[in-house]
Amino acid sequence: MIPSIILAAAEEGGSEEKNNFLVPNATFLFELVSFAIILFVLWKWILPPINNAMTERQNKIKAQFEEAEKLKAEAQAAEAENQSQLAEARAEASRIREEAREQGAQIVAQHREQAVVEAERITSAAQAQIEVERAQALAQLKNEVGTIATTLAGRIVGESFDDDERSKRSVDEFIAGLESAPKSEA
């Protein structure tokens, strides 16, 4: 193995003079032409379709994004509209409810007022009737009590108090005294 390396080194040393790898030879021209051909082929025939496909796809994706963006905006607008309509409807409903409540309260109040008035009317009518009846009863009583009292007194005394004029006056005075007595008490 060692001799072979030496051999290789010796060969290398020998060939270095006529073939320095940093100095180009005619291969340089071949490479220049080769690269020119490859560059030309790629530039003219291969890169344009790739770029076209890429641009087309990018545009398509961009269009899709724009479309999606638009749809999203539309959906958001519709959503906002829905929301506002819903809020409006809610407000309307609550307004109607409030109105109904007010109306109900009003009706109740009205009816209550009516009832109170009616009750008052009935009460006052009843009182008036009672008053009339009382007055009638009183008047009737006034007439009858005098007669009964004189009759009773006549029986007790044994003489008749048929002197109407006198007896009636005394009875009336008595009743008047009765009438005035409770009133002053009350």
């Binding site: 193995m1 290789a8 290398e12 060939s15 790898f21």
Partner: peptide, 12 residues
């Protein structure tokens, strides 16, 4: 031997 004899730097 074959392999090592190929080691000729920059030889074409």
């Amino acid at each position: 031997v074959l392999v090592s004899s190929d080691i000729e730097i920059g030889h074409h």
